[in-house]
Amino acid sequence: MLVFILRRLAQSAVVVVAMSVLVFAGIFAIGNPIDVLISPEADEFERAAAIARLGLDKPMHEQFLRFVDSALGGDLGTSFVHGVPALGLVLQRFPATLELALCAMLVAVALGIPLGLWAGLKPDSLAGRVIMTGSILGFSLPTFWVGMMLIMAFAVTLGWLPAGGRGETASLFGVQWSFLTADGLAHLILPAVNLALFKLSLVIRLARAGTREVALQDYVKFARAKGLAPARIVGVHILKNIMIPVVTVLGLELGSVIAFSVVTESVFAWPGMGKLLIDSILQLDRPVVIAYLLVTVLLFVVINLIVDLVYSLLDPRIRLGGGRA
């Protein structure tokens, strides 16, 4: 197990290094770093000072070392628009996005697994077909449009739920969360459902395919031959086996949910880091874009690492086999 963790850590480190090289190359080699790092409104004198300060006149490898050095120190530049460190700005918006993404995942799992199980156990029933058609639609519908239609239906026409924003928040561990207040929860429902839609379709498909496969296994028949109740067979014997692929894929998808929250946050004016990214892109606030990118890369790597560890906990064959090749 220790060897396994160490090996995965090493792999993650390689990806982080590779990505920071790519980001560096993107800013310094492809784009013009002066445009990226210095505000377009700066005058000639400020420009010269900034170039010297940032070491943009130095050779490439020296610049890279400086970039890495300041990035490790948490310095990713200062926002042109807000005048505060870019990294701090991104991190400050992170909890809102995380909250939204986790809620979306929760919705996707809480609805997707039962629906997928049902569709898998009774593939030819009317309900099974309806569920599958729904999941195909879920894949085809563009997220932002669904979001707008949700607002139209539930906020504008019916007036049940608020159309945007985070609502009232409460503090936990020094961070503001929406899910702790009733008003915040009401604000959370629509965006979470919107963001969940795509993953919900995915979970349904995975759960259905898994169920269909597992239900035919001898060990399910053996479980029936032992006289177990259907609830136990479906809830333990089948569910635990289909959870492995679902958890793996979902874990890997958490990153993409966080990335996709860019869209949902824009539709619902949710003040997370995705909204920050879009605002920054539109306002040419590039240090913030870079900070977002690096934070996201790091997040992806950490998520992949955690998924692998959880995966090994769920599947005894891997846990005790001493890791994968």
């Binding site: 296994q217 001898d218 060990y219 028949k221 053996f222 029936r224 031959a225 006289g227 005894p316």
Partner: peptide, 22 residues
């Protein structure tokens, strides 16, 4: 269900497949 496993038990062909791996 009350009879399965209690009054009549069953053993299957492939022992690799009859026990739930997880």
């Amino acid at each position: 269900r009350a009879i399965r496993g209690r009054r009549i038990a069953m053993i299957f062909q492939d022992p690799m497949m009859t026990l739930n791996p997880v």
